[in-house]
């Protein structure tokens, strides 16, 4: 089962000498352009006096980093909690939607589309401004986590459904022919295979969750973004601070993506062979 590993080989022919030369030239041009862009950015920073030590010196202080790391911890806590809730809720929504119970199926379909199409900021305002009016006060952690989770659950329900649809029809037909019921077929045959298929896209969706958490400042929850804003007003250092925070977000999401690629490669090989090692 090396299908995933050799996907590149299947999609692209191995390059010949001419192609390789063209690739080398292309790479050269890209590097030059990229260096030019970086030089331009640095120049613009310089021209606008953004390289002034005044804007950067506070990064040498531990307290700055401690404050940012606390924010990062907040971001991770929200993203992780919201991710878990979204997965469970997304799975339930998908199961409801594919069930043979017509009203349940329609309800789950509507809820999925609703969560998917509402901007998460709108959901956050709903939990921040509307719900408290009716007497339900939530800590700010939940005011950001719940709406982010709801928005993601709609998307994840669709991801799960794509996985279910990707399981060949013959699998459930064979199970039907054995006399298994719809519920058992879903649990024992379809879901285990569907989950393996969707693991990589599931992890990629966590990137969206992490990005959604950046509006936590709306509810004054101290996440990375909120703490960065506090530092910005303290030191009056907008550009340098946003620059560093952007790098941190890029690093988190890059790591998440790498993790999903790693899982995609593992998915075909070791999960299958692990099943072989424990026959029962």
């Amino acid at each position: 089962m090396s299908a995933n590993v050799s996907m590149r080989d299947a999609l692209y022919e191995a390059p010949g000498p001419k192609t390789r030369r063209r690739v080398a030239i292309g790479t050269g041009i890209s590097v030059v352009l990229l260096l030019g862009l970086i030089a331009f950015v640095i120049r613009q920073f310089y021209v606008n006096d953004q390289l002034n030590p005044r804007y950067w010196s506070f990064f040498a202080r531990w307290t700055t980093w401690r404050f940012l790391l606390r924010g990062l911890a907040g971001t991770i806590r929200v993203a992780f909690t919201a991710g878990i809730i979204a997965m469970i809720l997304g799975l339930l929504l998908m199961l409801g939607r594919i069930s043979h119970n017509r009203p349940l199926s329609v309800a789950c379909h509507v809820i999925t589309d609703l969560f998917r199409s509402l901007p998460s900021l709108l959901l956050i305002y709903f939990f921040f401004l509307v719900i408290p009016k009716y007497g339900l006060r939530m800590p700010s952690f939940w005011m950001i986590t719940v709406p982010v989770a709801l928005a993601a659950s709609g998307v994840l329900a669709e991801v799960f459904r794509a996985g279910v649809n990707a399981v060949p029809k013959g699998q459930s037909e064979a199970a039907m022919a054995l006399g298994m019921t719809h519920g058992k077929i879903t649990r024992k045959i379809v879901l285990p295979q569907a989950l393996r298929i969707v693991v990589p896209s599931l992890v990629s969706q966590l990137v969206v969750v992490v990005k959604d958490t950046t509006v936590a400042y709306v509810v004054s929850y101290p996440d990375l973004m909120q703490n960065a804003r506090v530092l910005i007003s303290n030191y009056d250092a907008l550009v340098s601070m946003y620059f560093v925070v952007a790098l941190i977000y890029i690093a988190i999401n890059y790591a998440t993506n790498q993790f999903s690629i790693y899982l995609a490669h593992r998915e075909g090989t070791s999960i299958m062979s692990r099943t072989t090692e424990n026959p029962v």
């Binding site: 060949p168 013959g170 699998q171 037909e173 064979a174 199970a175 054995l178 006399g179 298994m180 058992k184 024992k188 045959i189 285990p192 295979q193 393996r196 299958m272 099943t275 072989t276 026959p279 029962v280």
Partner: peptide, 19 residues
């Protein structure tokens, strides 16, 4: 249409155990 995520033995025991 053997169950791709199950061993050969599990494929054969699936029906008797579950049904």
């Amino acid at each position: 249409n053997l169950f791709a995520h199950k061993t050969i033995l599990q494929n054969v025991t699936m029906g008797p155990i579950e049904v």
